[in-house]
Design a protein around this nucleic acid. Structure first.
Lengths: 69, 69
DNA sequence: ACCAAATGTAAACTTCACTTTACATATTAG
DNA sequence: CTAATATGTAAAGTGAAGTTTACATTTGGT
């Protein structure tokens, strides 16, 4: 799964730490999500979309590999 | 977080087992998500939305409590 | 009422999301 | 240049997502 977190953050001029605080997770969590190290829960994804005033689908996108067995 | 999985399944006439097979998780996982027992990963949420030809935000909705510290 | 399919639930287990602490490297401002 | 801010990364721990097996209950069709 890929995401456009970095771009969305840039648009709103937010640091990873800023975003982390807004959605109440650690800065490392944002960093890890952003760099594809792990997949956020859907609650986190919804919160992130909410902060950026958009939808989950606009920010997160499935890749072929996500459908692999 | 609440969801409209049951309704979406009904629209498409899918059983929990059907949906489970389509997105490649166990039937119990669908049951647990549907009954709010746990929060799916965003990959699962995206797959589910894909199956129902809609968006994650249409199916899953944050509740006040999700923002509580 | 009866049978089959669908759903609910439980226990034990594995994996990974997320935390905290800590430090190293980039980036930007003055 | 240098000091502060932002980002990358790592290790050890905790809790919850998701698995399998198994059984009990509900629902629907005939």
């Amino acid at each position: 799964m890929k995401n456009t977190l970095k771009v969305e953050r840039a648009k709103k001029n937010l640091t990873q730490a800023d975003l982390a605080k807004l959605i109440m997770v650690s800065r490392q969590t944002i960093n890890a999500i952003e760099s594809g190290k792990y997949v956020p829960s859907s609650v986190l994804a919804l919160k992130i979309a909410h902060i950026f005033e958009t939808s989950v689908n606009e920010i997160f996108e499935l890749e072929e590999s996500d459908w692999a067995k």
